[in-house]
Design a protein around this nucleic acid. Structure first.
Lengths: 141, 141
DNA sequence: CCGTATCCAACAGGATACTG
DNA sequence: CAGTATCCTGTTGGATACGG
């Protein structure tokens, strides 16, 4: 047999793709997945998760300082959404002044790992992408 | 020594996080990475890449039919952006009527693999997330 | 067949002011 | 301190019509 590593990778890839396309005329059927992946799209979710992963248990204003440029409103909205999805947990301490601490859940940590994989890919390919953009832009002028 | 697998994973995680936070007061410094990851956020890029990965070389209207719900405008916009980033390539055949074929580049294929990893995570955790949402919603009415 | 151009609605998200 | 509430703007993306 003369099966290369590349061939095996290709077969593996097709298998995974099958999972998402099998027997579905309507491809938007796997929307729950998209729904979750949309969390990658909003402006602050990734940064919130990265910062919580980096710093661990963090208070509201502390987090606000770490995530540069985020407004109070958007931090609240972002944290609520992540909490609702079970990715972070919110602990309120009955003190005066009030203290609220946020931290990743186990689920959140498992997502963090995936985010870092992705960030690693992006980081490793940013040069090639920027080069591609430059080439493209110079051609269409 | 009594270092568990979990401990090692944690250390590995912190190492990766360091890469993105090292010596940066301003965390938005690693924006090129975010810039790329924003492609995950828009409404159609992922579906375009998944479909191209699944079907290989595909024509414009063929792709339009496969990606359910996409408008002509958005397919054009999406494909242009992906082409500019060097993730897909566009081949025009000088025929009448014109024929245009799109396909993933090598870079696009490498991104496809990451997307599938992510989709696999999402797919594997969608139940837990939906359960978390239900719990959250029932608590706050 | 494969687009571009134009217009328009919906929504994400910023600024600001106020509260338990 | 840790939020809500309100208002307002910019961007995303859909619908439609037209062009090479």
């Amino acid at each position: 047999m003369d099966v290369t590593i590349a061939d095996n990778q290709q077969i593996e890839l097709q298998k995974k793709l099958q999972i998402f396309f099998q027997g579905k005329e309507e491809h938007h059927e796997f929307c729950p997945v998209r729904d979750i992946m949309d969390r990658f799209g909003d402006k602050w979710s990734l940064l919130a998760i990265l910062n919580l992963g980096y710093s661990g248990k963090t208070r509201f204003n502390e987090l606000k300082n770490k995530i540069d440029g985020i407004s109070q409103r958007m931090l609240t909205v972002t944290l609520r959404t992540l909490e609702r999805d079970g990715l972070i947990e919110r602990k309120v301490y009955a003190e005066v002044p009030p203290r609220v601490e946020y931290d990743l859940t186990l689920l959140g940590h498992s997502l963090l790992r995936k985010i870092l994989d992705l960030a690693q890919w992006a980081s490793g390919n940013v040069d090639e992408i920027l080069k591609a953009r430059a080439t493209y832009d110079s051609k269409i002028q």
